[in-house]
């Protein structure tokens, strides 16, 4: 049996990485520009919209998660879920960045600076 790497393998890896690079590029282009606020959703329902401009501490979902906004960045500091992936994640500030805590179904999303119907088109 041939276990050596074939040309198609390299091609496959190249395509996957190209798609990853393209997705990253698109995100950084869309995400550029000043961010205004973060939307906190629990179970798909909006719990609140918070300004990134002012430092504050937000208790989400009756205390399952804590979100701290500081220096224009939002960071999940506490969560009662076992994996703590959302806590270990870096702070978010760019448009369309998000912190997601899957076990508690909590989503923190950065909104774009401007508000209005254009958002839907831009997305």
């Amino acid at each position: 049996m041939n276990t050596g790497i074939k040309k198609n393998d390299i091609l496959l890896i190249f395509i996957v990485l190209a798609v990853a690079g393209l997705a990253y590029f698109l995100h950084s282009v869309i995400g550029a520009g000043g961010a205004g606020s973060v939307t906190v959703k629990v179970n798909g329902v909006i719990e609140g919209v918070y300004n990134l401009g002012e430092d504050q501490e937000i208790v989400i979902n009756e205390g399952t998660n804590y979100l701290v906004i500081k220096n224009g960045k939002a960071d999940m500091t506490k969560a009662d879920c076992p994996d703590k992936l959302c806590v270990n994640q870096k702070a978010v500030s760019k448009k369309h960045e998000s912190i997601i805590c899957l076990p508690n179904k909590v989503i923190v999303e950065v909104n774009s600076g401007e508000k209005g119907e254009y958002d839907a088109v831009a997305n």
Binding site: A20, A23, K41, E97, S98, K105
Partner: peptide, 20 residues
């Protein structure tokens, strides 16, 4: 599907690279 958001797509580049 579970959290009903597409903003998870933010993780696509990282997950593709990690999977590779």
């Amino acid at each position: 599907f579970i959290v009903e958001t597409f903003s998870i797509s933010y993780y696509i580049p990282g997950l593709l690279a990690a999977g590779t």
